[in-house]
Structures are given as C-alpha cells and as structure tokens.
C-alpha cells in the first residue's frame, strides 16, 4: 500500500469525520435558554374577540405568569389578591386576541386588568417605561380594561406621570365574570398606523409583554385597596404570534443528506481505486 496515497485519503476521511462531529456539537450547543412566553396560534376562522368563553380558546396553549405586589415605586402595596395570571392568545394574520384569566373572589366595579408591551427596538423599564439612568429606554403601550366600563383603552407611557390614552383607540376589550374567575379578552390589529406609539406584531418575532391586575375590593372605610400604582404586577415576559409553517428546514436537511451520501460514495470509490492500484 502506498503510504503517501493512504495518508492523503485518510486525511480526507478524518476531515469528513471532524466536519460531521462539529455539526453534531454545533447543533447541540445552539439551543436557546428557555423563557416563559405566551404564543398566539395562527387560526383560520374568526377570532373570538368579544367572547371570553368561546370554544376557540381551548385550542390556545395557556401560559401562567406569577404576580407580585407592586413594590418598585410609591405608592406601594404589600399584599394583592391575584397571585397568578393565565394568558392565552390567538391570531388570524390580521388581528391578535389575548385572553386573561384569574381568580377573584368578588366581582367589583373597579376590577381592572392591563397588558403592557415594549414599543419599538429600545428596551423599556417594566414600570411604565420609566427612565433608566445608564440606558436610553423606549416607551410602553398599555391596553387597559375596567369592569365598570367593560371596554379597552389604548394608552402610552414613557415614565411616571406620562400615562395617557391615545388619540386613536385601536384596542377592544370585554370581560366576563363567572365562578370566582375573570375572563377578559383584549384584541387589536397586528399592526397599526402609529408604530411610534403602538406595539406592532410581526409573526415569528418575540415582543416583551407584562401584566397588571387590580382587585376592586374596598376596605372597611369604603376606600379602594388596590388602585393606581397599588396593584399586582408581573415582570417582562415574551409574546410571539406564531408564523405560518416553514418547511424549508426539511429541504436543507435533504440536500445535506444527499451531499453526505455523495461524499461517502466518492470516498469509498477513491479508497477502492487505491486498493487496486
């Protein structure tokens, strides 16, 4: 056997093995850190934008987010009613709808809930997009619902004291109370004509989302216990509208498998030629 030829052939073989090993290792190392997200499934029928009890919601995967008393800025609160919030979402390619569910022992006129989104590319602090000292932050878009009004209010904020309703109101909301549980549906078009003020949904992309809930119960003196900044809040989590199915991965996999098969064929053929030489 010719040592020079053999060395060259095995050099090619080893390179092939190393490439395959690197592919294996690279893929194993490429997994992303898992975070909690609410995902809006793509549906073909009409969205249940005004029906919190629609059967369509059963097809949406629930995400449960823990809630805390708001202690970040005054006025604070030490204890709140709502401990966990279950969120589902659906979209049809033009509109998105969120269903918020939580336990509340009493139905009160001042029961309220809100969804908060970052707007644009800049990060915004979860507390109403308040200014950060070393980072240039962006605004937040807040969708608000209160039982006694039973409608959605589309708002904007960039820091404390800046919260204001939009001149354009794009959000709808409707809540229904049954069996000690609130179910509230928020909906809006995926995109609006005000990208500087409104969250814009691009299917496939993750958006930061947070939540707030007020239990409208009153104390012995008739004063609201949870009001304004005294509320249950969540941290930032993620929201994504699921994109249409993408099958390109199968095509790339097929091409790669055929190339690997071809590589084997050429390698073995060359080895056999070397043996017969």
């Amino acid at each position: 056997m010719n040592p020079v030829k053999l060395s060259a052939r095995w050099s090619a073989y080893v390179k092939g093995v190393l490439i395959a090993t690197l592919i294996v290792g690279g893929a194993a190392d490429g997994s992303a850190q898992e975070s909690v997200a609410v995902r809006a499934s793509l549906v073909s029928g009409a969205l249940p934008v005004d029906d919190p009890n629609a059967a369509a919601w059963n097809s949406a995967a629930p995400a449960v987010f823990p809630m805390s008393p708001q202690v970040h800025w005054p006025d604070r609160i030490q204890e709140v009613t709502v401990q966990d919030l279950t969120v589902r979402a659906l979209h049809d390619g033009t509109q998105v709808a969120f269903l918020l569910e939580y336990d509340d022992p009493t139905q009160d006129p001042d029961d309220a809930a809100a969804i908060e989104f970052m707007v644009g590319d800049k990060k915004a602090h979860f507390a109403h997009g308040q200014p950060m000292l070393l980072v240039d932050g962006g605004p937040v878009n807040i969708w608000f619902w209160k039982h006694k009004d039973n409608k959605g209010v589309d708002m904007w904020a960039k820091g404390f004291g800046t919260l204001r309703p939009h001149s354009h109101q794009d959000v709808t909301a409707k809540g229904e109370y049954a069996n000690g549980k609130w179910r509230i549906v928020f909906s809006r078009s995926l995109v609006t004509e005000h990208p500087d003020e409104d969250m814009q949904v691009t299917p496939g992309q993750f958006i930061n989302i947070a939540f707030a809930v007020w239990d409208g119960r009153k104390d012995a003196t008739g004063q609201l216990i949870e009001k304004g900044s005294q509320k249950a809040v969540s941290s930032w989590w993620y929201f994504r509208a699921e994109p249409p199915p993408d099958y390109s991965g199968y095509l790339y996999a097929g091409v790669a498998a055929v190339l690997a098969l071809g590589f084997q064929f050429v390698l073995i053929r060359k080895l056999k030629e070397g043996q017969s030489a």
């Binding site: 690279g26 490429g30 850190q33 898992e34 975070s35 993408d246 996999a253």
Partner: peptide
C-alpha cells in the same frame, strides 16, 4: 446512518427555533 445524521443535524441547525431570545 451518517447521511441521516448529517440531515438531522442540518434540520436542527436551520429550522426556526421558536425559542425566546437567550438572555
């Protein structure tokens, strides 16, 4: 097995992850 492994790894590397951004 080798071509199937290469195809499978390629699929894993190119398919949309669906995972939130790593923090």
């Amino acid at each position: 097995f080798f071509p199937l492994l290469v195809g499978w790894q390629t699929y894993n590397a190119t398919a949309p992850s669906g995972q939130p951004p790593a923090e």
